[in-house]
Amino acid sequence: MTMNENNANTPDLSVPDHLMYSEDHVWIDTSVSPAVLGVTEYAVERLGDLVFIDLPDEGSEVRAGDEPVELESAKAISTMVVPVSGTIKYVNHAVSDDPEVINGDPYGEGWILKIELDDDEPELLDADGYKKVTE
């Protein structure tokens, strides 16, 4: 996927078809329970190398629009806006111990949260819809 047709220096980034996406650059896999969430490769590229991640507590309740995760890179501090409501069942301690895991594999080992969803049908984008957001 080309993020910006006018910028030849912008790399093509991965947007897996089996995931759903928010306009805030969060991916979610709703095919499993609890649902798995992380930040997209686009977000990782924009933030730069992550150096610190502050995760919420397991068992915490979140609402769509909450910002329970803080991501810090050499460039900026940002938050992950969750696009769903539910209960955080698991947090990926491996990414807080070594944030580089997200940089290297944002859609796999770099997952951030697993949430038991309150709403079975969150309003999310498919891969094609998300690609349009990042163009």
Results as ranks from 00 to 15, higher is better:
Pro122Trp: 01
Val133Glu: 03
Ala35His: 03
Lys89Glu: 11
Val101Cys: 11
Ser31Leu: 06
Glu72Tyr: 08
Gly104Ala: 15
Pro16Tyr: 03
Asn6Cys: 03
Met80Pro: 04
Ile77Thr: 15
Val51His: 06
Ser85Tyr: 08
Gly86Asp: 01
Ser60Val: 12
Asn4Ile: 07
Asp17Tyr: 01
Leu50Lys: 04
Asp24His: 08
Lys75Asn: 13
Val101Gln: 12
Pro16Ser: 06
Ser14Pro: 00
Glu67Thr: 15
Asp126Phe: 07
Pro122Ser: 14
Val44Glu: 09
Asn4Thr: 12
Trp111Ala: 14
Thr87Tyr: 10
Ala64Leu: 06
His18Tyr: 06
Glu5His: 14
Asn4Leu: 05
Ala76Lys: 08
Gly65Gln: 09
Leu117Ala: 09
Met80Ala: 02
Glu45Pro: 02
Leu71Val: 13
Ser73Gly: 15
Asp119Ser: 03
Ala8Pro: 01
Ala127Ile: 15
His25Ser: 08
Glu45Gly: 08
Pro56Val: 08
Thr2Leu: 13
Glu72Asp: 10
Thr40Asn: 07
Val32Glu: 07
Val36Phe: 01
Asp66His: 03
Leu55His: 10
Ser73Glu: 02
Tyr107Thr: 01
Thr134Lys: 10
Val62Ser: 02
Gly59Lys: 12
Lys114Gln: 14
Glu23Ala: 13
His18Trp: 03
Val51Tyr: 07
Glu100Val: 13
Tyr107Glu: 00
Tyr21Cys: 07
Thr10Ile: 11
Leu124Met: 14
Thr30Ile: 15
Asp119His: 09
Glu109Met: 05
Lys114Ile: 04
Met3Asp: 10
Ala64Gln: 06
Ser14Phe: 03
Met20Val: 01
Val84His: 04
Thr40Met: 05
Ile28Leu: 05
Leu117Trp: 10
Ser33Gly: 02
Val62Arg: 03
Glu58Ser: 12
Val26Gln: 01
Glu67Ala: 12
Leu13Gln: 08
Val95Leu: 09
Gly129Leu: 03
Thr10Asp: 08
Glu116Arg: 15
Lys89Ser: 12
Leu47Asn: 04
Glu61Pro: 00
Tyr130Gly: 00
Leu113Tyr: 06
Val81Glu: 07
